[in-house]
């Protein structure tokens, strides 16, 4: 089975306004698909449809050749989604935050190994030493990194990222960009909206919204 997210003649109408119409796109294994467009052109809505959150669309959406509406749970089990908000609880420590996500994704490991995995994930995004501080005391960029640590912690093929470069410092941006490349090089796929100009790559394709 090969990863393939495909949309044909996708259209979305909100309160009598067409956000987009007749949109065709395909995301294969090993590809980064970047969705561009001005503010209000429906990037986030498209991302929500493509990540299976929004079922209110016209057209066809398929995952690995099967209609999305039928294989939604399968699809979700292969997905990591990072939205506008980091989804990090201020009152919980980074470790506790990650523990919930790990369990929610069905990756809960009992005892030491789960903890070790979480520590390794935090270390790899440069949050080693911050693991026991309530996330509310971390900076916005660090909280964002806690959310990004999920990418390391939970091995999933499809990453859907809504403006992932927000609030991260320059080094972090470069590292995340490199991380996206390694993910697709290993056969994963990335769907991303961003205003950040990404390095040209053979694996990077773009879709533009809001031109009509």
């Amino acid at each position: 089975m090969s990863l393939r997210l495909q949309a044909r003649k996708l259209a979305c109408e909100r309160d009598d306004r067409w956000l987009f119409r007749d949109l065709d796109l395909t995301l294969n294994a090993g590809e980064i698909l970047r969705i561009e467009g001005p503010n209000g052109s429906g990037k986030t809505t498209l991302l929500k449809i493509l990540s299976g959150q929004l079922g209110d669309y016209d057209g066809e959406l398929s995952w690995c050749g099967q209609p999305m509406r039928q294989v939604r749970r399968d699809f979700l089990a292969n997905l990591i989604y990072l939205g506008h908000a980091p989804g990090v609880k201020a009152a919980l420590t980074p470790l506790e935050n990650l523990a919930w996500y790990q369990a929610l994704a069905g990756e809960a490991r009992a005892g030491k190994s789960g903890h070790a995995l979480r520590m390794a994930a935090l270390d790899s995004i440069g949050l080693g030493g911050f693991e026991d501080i309530p996330a509310g005391q971390l900076s916005a960029g660090q909280q964002r990194r806690v959310a990004l640590a999920r990418l390391e912690l939970i091995p999933r093929a499809l990453w859907v990222l809504d403006e992932p470069f927000t609030a991260i410092d320059q080094n972090g941006v470069a590292a995340l960009e490199a991380r996206l490349i390694t993910h697709v090089r290993r056969g994963g796929s990335v769907l991303v909206t961003t205003h950040h100009v990404m390095k040209a790559s053979a694996r990077l394709r773009s879709v533009r919204l809001g031109d009509d």
Partner: peptide
């Protein structure tokens, strides 16, 4: 804080 969005995306 966006955690609800993640809850909705759980395969469970």
């Amino acid at each position: 804080d966006g955690a609800l969005e993640q809850l909705l995306l759980s395969p469970h």
